[in-house]
C-alpha cells in the first residue's frame, strides 16, 4: 500500500499495552464467570447440558491434549484468512475501479446491489454444490462474504474531497501519482474499516461452511461435539472461536497502525 510510514509508535509497547487494558471491564467479566459457575453448581440454572466454566476449562484441556483443537483452529484460520486476503485484493482493486471510473459504476451497480441483497448464508449450499466438501469451497464462501464490506468501503473511500484532487492538478501530479499519493491514502482509513468488517464476517462464514459443508475446522468441531454430547468440549470450542475473532481484529489493527500511521491518525483512528 502507498504511504507506508516506517515510523513505529513512539510510546513504548509495554506502557501502551497497560493503557489499553480495562481493569474494571476485566473484573466484570471474571465476576460474570463466577456467577455462571455458582448458578450451575447450585442448580439455579438447570439445563441438562450446560457445563460450569470450570468444566469448560477441563474440556479445553482435553481438546488440546488430543490435538483436535490445534488442527481445527489451524484449518479454520487458514481458510478464513485466505478468503479474507483474496477478498482484500479483489475488493480494493475492484472498489478502486468502481469508485474512479464512472461508466463502470453505472453499468455494474444494479447487479451489485441485487447480489448484495442476497443473504450470504444462502450462498453456502450453492458453493457446496459447485466445489464439493473441500477447503476450496470454504475459501470461496469466506472470500465472497468478506468481499462486500471491503468493496463497498473502498468505493465510498474513493470519493476523494474535490479540493485534494485540485491540489494534485495544481501541482501537476500525473494520474497514477494522484491515485497513489492522494486518492488511495485518503481512502485508507475507510478501506481499513472494510477490512476489519470483512475479517470478522469471513470467520463467521467459514464456521458456517464447516458446519453445513466441509467436515473440518472449528465449525465442524462444534457440531461434532454437540452431537457427541460433550458440552464442555463444545463450549471450549465456542470460547476459542471468540478469542480467535478478538485476536485477529487486534492484530489487524496493530498492523494497520504500523503501516498507515499518518492516515489513521488523520482520520482520528490512530493509537
Amino acid at each position: 500500500m502507498p504511504e507506508a510510514s516506517a515510523v513505529a509508535s513512539r510510546v513504548p509497547p509495554s506502557k501502551a499495552l497497560r493503557g489499553r487494558i480495562n481493569a474494571v471491564g476485566a473484573a466484570v467479566f471474571v465476576l460474570g464467570l463466577g456467577v455462571w459457575e455458582l448458578a450451575v453448581r447450585t442448580g439455579l440454572l438447570d439445563f441438562a447440558y450446560l457445563p460450569p466454566p470450570s468444566d469448560v476449562v477441563v474440556g479445553l484441556g482435553e481438546l488440546i491434549e488430543t490435538g483436535q483443537l490445534q488442527g481445527a483452529l489451524a484449518h479454520t484460520l487458514f481458510v478464513a484468512l485466505s478468503g479474507w486476503a483474496l477478498a482484500g485484493l479483489l475488493g480494493v482493486a475492484a472498489g478502486s475501479v468502481l469508485g474512479l471510473v464512472r461508466p463502470v459504476w453505472r453499468y455494474s451497480m444494479a447487479s451489485l446491489e441485487a447480489l448484495r441483497a442476497l443473504p450470504i448464508v444462502a450462498f453456502v449450499p450453492v458453493a457446496v454444490l459447485l466445489y464439493g466438501f473441500s477447503a476450496r469451497m470454504e475459501i470461496v464462501v469466506a472470500c465472497y462474504a468478506a468481499l462486500w464490506p471491503i468493496l463497498l468501503n473502498t468505493i465510498s473511500g474513493m470519493r476523494t474531497e474535490q479540493r485534494l484532487i485540485e491540489v494534485g492538478a495544481v501541482l501537476r501530479l500525473s494520474r497514477p501519482a494522484v491515485l497513489w499519493k492522494i486518492r488511495l491514502p485518503a481512502a485508507t482509513a475507510q478501506i481499513v474499516v472494510g477490512l476489519r468488517l470483512g475479517l470478522s464476517i469471513s470467520l463467521v462464514l467459514t464456521l458456517v461452511a464447516e458446519m453445513v459443508g466441509n467436515p473440518a475446522g472449528l465449525g465442524f468441531l462444534l457440531v461434532d461435539k454437540a452431537e457427541a454430547l460433550q458440552p464442555a468440549q463444545m463450549f471450549a470450542g465456542v470460547f476459542v472461536v471468540g478469542v480467535a475473532g478478538i485476536v485477529l481484529n487486534a492484530l489487524l489493527m496493530v498492523a494497520a497502525r504500523l503501516a498507515f500511521r499518518g492516515q489513521l491518525n488523520a482520520a482520528g483512528e490512530g493509537g
Binding site: 504511504e3 491514502p185 498507515f260 499518518g262 492516515q263
Partner: peptide
Amino acid sequence: VHSLLPWRT
C-alpha cells in the same frame, strides 16, 4: 485544512 494531506508530515 482541506488542501493539505493530513496523513503526510
